[in-house]
Write a protein that binds this DNA or RNA. Structure first.
Lengths: 329, 329
DNA sequence: GTGAAAGCGCTAACAA
DNA sequence: TTGTTAGCGCTTTCAC
């Protein structure tokens, strides 16, 4: 029925071991033998069974990706970077959506373990305590992209959120902003802390007090941003910084609906920079995270762990850039 | 080291076969035995190795998803529906991006075959001839979502594009539209044909001639739409229908930049309805494809094939709805 | 209701 | 340079 390595061996009049060797590019094969085997492989249209291979070698060339929601542009941009590099290194990715639900997250993780993935990439959101312990217990290489963990020793790829937010906030303050509202949409306490510290540092540098009530929360979608506008108006903020682009666009439209001029009366900036930023008018100013690159670098980092290469820096910080478009002065 | 079925058998003082039976919910196990085994499983924290299982049973509970670009909202919406249903049926999905490149597509397919996936979902884009033949030769269940194939016997999930476009075009014509430009962004000739026929049918019903030059092409992104606006203006179209939301938004902004009033001077509608439609002002009118559902139903259909259930209808047509928002009168 | 044993298709010592 | 052989961890007849 299906042609196996045994069929190839028989046809080529060599042993399975030799076929296996040419399959795996083992140099210990005489060129003629190699050619002979390759010819038979081609003639029989033989395709190695990766499952059998995985069982025998304990390597599946598959990595798991745990992601809050693939239909969110932020995460799917990361995922695209991930997959491109995975493909380059001959890995395939199993993607599982969790909606940031700890239970789904744990199930996803256990599922991936049982599938014997060679590594796992965790995207965005927060890793709950229990899963985190499972991960550590599993001795599987894991890389976290686009979010920070309590245990900051876990390999990760990020930008320097503290610096980014501080830089953005400072600029606003310098130019006369009075009250910056910050809308967090992250599920990672750690990440939120970095960000809050960034804002506070900016205020401190200007010798201004920061009022905690200007830190708001919203889900990372359009509607949440829109609903939040009332609150923002109440607070009389003249600047709003959000994590998610969608949230920022929601706020923007909230402002437009209330006839508040953007950026004259209120400035809006996000911290994400998906392709959405150019698809609204006015174009959204944003801290530009290199989303694709974060994914790509994350996967590259993971391959290093999987191949037991030495890694110099487990916590990669990628550069960010602040794109001032038309929602800021 | 890792605990295997053998360890469980030994500890529970039964045979591996029995452990396997309780694992797989085989009823031929005495309740006491079952309980005993379950206890040991729990105590040892035993997790079945899905790879070994796959090798022995020739079922991997993994399905492959071949997709043009996961970072495109259209496809990622489909993918999300796919994954949710896959999870429900205890399947996991391997996602591979192809950028509609036939070579990548073929590699993706061969990779999935070698991983012994139980089925494949093909999303959007066009399946090239060669891959299509491979698929047929593989006897693997395959479902196509959101696009049509030459071979219309392949299981698929779609809306009735012909009817949708015809309905939309008819309405525009009835209300006095003179020249409808249609921007296709599909890679499937088959799909394009359905759509063109829909438009032509609408013109015919109104006894008007349709001029082929009003059928334009663009990539399914924002910039392409924007660049296309010059051409549209040249054609003096008063209605533009695009496949992709991003393209429509590009056209919309093109119009705004040229001080052409939307919808008064030009009406714009897309045929997709991702969450983007509400994130622009004015909100984009669109033929609402049930993207999530197309994915979900597609995966459900695939599970039927994988479990050898009987399927009544291999070519599922889901209902569409035309959402008239503010880019149309 | 349960167990013994033969694979599934491959890799990886170890020998030769 | 090549072959032999013993698994990898499970499912699945087939007996009992």
């Amino acid at each position: 029925m299906t042609v196996t390595i045994y069929d190839v061996a028989r046809e080529a009049k060599v042993s399975m071991a030799t076929v296996s060797r040419v399959l795996n590019g083992n140099p210990n094969v005489k060129p003629e033998t190699r050619k002979k085997v390759k010819d038979v492989i081609e003639r029989l249209d033989y395709r190695p069974n990766a499952v059998a291979r995985g069982l025998a070698s304990k390597k599946t060339t598959t990595v798991g990706v745990i992601i809050p929601d693939i239909s969110n542009l932020y995460y799917s941009s990361l995922a695209r970077g991930l997959d491109d590099i995975a493909e380059m290194y001959n890995y395939q990715i199993i993607i599982t959506n969790t909606d940031n639900d700890p239970e789904k997250e744990r199930d996803a993780f256990l599922g991936l373990i049982s599938k014997q993935v060679d590594g796992i990439v965790f995207l965005g959101g927060a890793l709950n305590e229990e899963t985190l312990n499972d991960i550590k217990g599993s001795h599987l290489p894991v890389v976290i992209c686009g979010t920070s963990e309590k245990d900051e020793n876990m390999p990760s790829v990020n930008i320097d959120y503290y610096e980014a937010i501080k830089e953005a906030a400072s600029k606003f303050l310098e130019e006369g902003a009075e009250q910056i509202a910050f809308v967090k949409a992250s599920y990672s306490e750690q990440l939120e802390r970095h960000i809050e510290e960034g804002i506070k540092a900016a205020y401190q540098e200007k010798n201004k007090d920061f009022d905690e009530q200007y830190i708001l929360s919203a889900a990372e979608d359009y509607q949440s941003g829109k609903s939040l506008f009332g609150k923002i108006q109440e607070l009389k903020s003249d600047v709003v910084i959000t994590m998610s682009d969608e949230t920022a666009i929601g706020v923007l439209h909230g402002a437009m609906d209330h006839n508040i001029a953007v950026p004259d009366e209120i400035q809006i900036m996000s911290c994400s920079n998906t392709r959405l930023v150019n698809m609204v008018r006015p174009p959204l100013s944003s801290v530009a995270l290199p989303l694709y690159d974060i994914g790509a670098v994350g996967m590259r980092l993971l391959t290093k762990y999987m191949n037991e290469e030495t890694v110099e820096e487990a916590n990669v910080i990628l550069p960010y850039k602040i794109e001032y478009r038309a929602t800021t002065k």
